[in-house]
Design a protein around this nucleic acid. Structure first.
Lengths: 153, 153
DNA sequence: AAATCATGGTTTCAAATTAAAACCACATAT
DNA sequence: ATATGTGGTTTTAATTTGAAACCATGATTT
């Protein structure tokens, strides 16, 4: 189950999160969790994946602290799966994924679901990466830099 | 190779992009491409994945229009893999992933690579989702809504 | 009380995918 | 002529997946 996603023994800042999420199914589960789904059966119906796989994915997400199990809210003797803070932290990633999807996977006139501001019912703005001083940054305007070498080596 | 990621025949706005990317390896390839890698061998050395898998992933990314192959820039008789516009569009997603990783996968004092503004060498700002009017939005402040039913049914 | 049903899983097993290694083709260098 | 580097493909075994069957628990019907 602990599939190594990189040959380096310490996973980098991108690979480490990927490793925790596990796979695409897991991300769809998380998305459904953002949509308010909490029960095993709800996820299964929504995603249509095999129960054993769902079971494994939920277990993995819980193990990685993305979901947490809580004793059912409605008296039923089962448990529910809810997003932790860590899980909630995936929101921007899901938005990024959705916006990319809107940009490149739909015809300009093709109808698709939209993420809207609850208060105004307006679609949300696009995610934008900005510098400290507020300038918008494209990919070419950035570099990944190594952490400053600590003194001991 | 066309693995169905959802039981619904039309994939939703999140599942469709996931389906195109393919798997985690592909996303790491894309990240390396953002870092300037272009050659088969570079990707293989950087990621340490089996050559047949890399081959398949590259092919898939090209098939989905995320990478494009161009005749080698340096005279060598090989080809190079470069990001298309669609591929470049994945930048925010990678940033989101990286920031989530920084938030939850490193000790507060653990050193890690950083994404910085080329011009100032300052770390970039956090991605923030905002409403049209500029208010910052948390997950709970948003909903996903279905497209307006077109008249014909 | 007994039988039935709903939920939330686990187990079993066949099929698909992945990974490691060997192999190959082409070009350049020695 | 031989070796070496690049960019793959093929072969084969191991792992993962997914469908279906099974099971346990509690609630519901008869």
């Amino acid at each position: 189950m602990a599939k190594r996603v990189s040959h380096k023994d310490s996973l980098c800042g991108v690979a480490r999160p990927l490793d925790a999420i596990g796979d695409w199914w897991s991300l769809l589960i998380v998305r459904d969790a953002f949509d308010g789904l909490r029960r095993f059966g709800e996820f299964q119906k929504s995603l249509g994946l095999a129960k054993n796989i769902l079971s494994a994915r939920l277990r993995n997400l819980v193990a990685h602290g993305i979901l947490d199990t809580v004793p059912a809210s409605d008296g039923s003797p089962y448990q529910e799966y809810v997003l932790t803070q860590k899980g909630l932290g995936l929101f921007p990633l899901l938005v990024a994924l959705r916006q990319w999807g809107e940009d490149f996977f739909f015809q300009p006139d093709e109808p698709h679901v939209m993420l809207v501001d609850r208060k105004t019912n307006q679609p949300v703005r696009r995610l934008e990466l900005r510098a400290q001083d507020g300038r918008m940054l494209m990919a070419e305007d950035t570099v990944v830099v190594a952490p400053p070498e600590s003194g001991s080596r």
